[in-house]
Amino acid sequence: MSPTPAQSGQPAQPGTIVAGFLAPHPPHLVYAENPPQNEPRSEGGWEVLRWGYEQVRQRLESLAFDTIVVHSPHWKTVTGHHLLGVPRFRSLSVDPIFPNLFRYHYDLSVDVELAEAIAAEGADAGLVTELMRNPDFRVDYGTIVSCHLARPQWDRPIVGISSNRAYFSFSNEVGEQEMLALGRATRRAIERTGRRAVLLASNSLSHRHFTSEPAVPEDMTAEHPYSHNQYRWDMHVIELMRKGRCRQLLDEMPDFIEQATSECKDGSLTWLLGALGVPDYPATVHAYGTVIGTGNAVVEWLPPDPAPGVAAPGVAAPSVNAVGGAA
């Protein structure tokens, strides 16, 4: 049993967020990679996005971190924010929407102590939080896809946070405030427990899907943005990230959500930006591409002032390593 934060007392060093990523979860990207854990086989596809994730994996190799905190749109909860609260989960994840692409055998451990600390910090901030203690629980596929793509070794414990439906129950503005508060609570909990945490926000950008699938799902001649409007919005918000204008991004987020049917409505990106203190420094865009018409970007924020003693990878000037995917 992990000690609770109260029992463990103050850590020797305050914890920190060593990196945050926008790390979308289309199961197609795992399918395309043919990892041993996934049952279906493919001929590839969506390479640009997968190359972007390769950059994420390389970055994580260069960072010292001990836990991955992931916020997933595909664990949907209405009554509060739920967090995985069982030390280990091992099962089969079958995507209910793309079962033909994603049937993944996972075996993961959970940083229950950090999960409890986030729940406690959130509750202190007036949020409803709940630990998920049922050992039979099946971890949602969004969490698994984002974690697999960022760290396929599964050698760090994770904290899984559900997507509260505040945007849907109330409004985009209420949802945004709720997610920013959860992000701040996450940061405080990381600091208090002395964790060196990597954060993954698991949502796509524009999110209207095609309603049909090509006979060969990885047929890239069928892949392109759902609409010019969605593409234009995606490029706009990516540009704001690259320029370090996340405050403006948050201001425009309600419009982005409505006009580009953005999966940001599930709150993951706003949570990440809240945890990172709404970055005013440039993000690195590792890739942009579409998956059944939805816009997906792999984006990295490296806080400019990592804890001393860590080999800080230089904060690069804004760059786009790869953009593509539109056929």
């Binding site: 949907k76 929407i97 709940e130 998920m132 049922n134 949602d140 059944i292």
Partner: peptide
């Protein structure tokens, strides 16, 4: 049971699982 690519119909003759609701997991399996 939400879907986006058309509709899906369940055809496994004998599906077996221990299911936990994502929201109401505290009520049991």
């Amino acid at each position: 049971w939400m879907s986006v690519i058309g509709h899906q119909v369940q055809a496994d003759p004998q599906p077996v699982w221990t299911h936990v609701d994502p929201e109401f997991h505290a009520l049991g399996s």
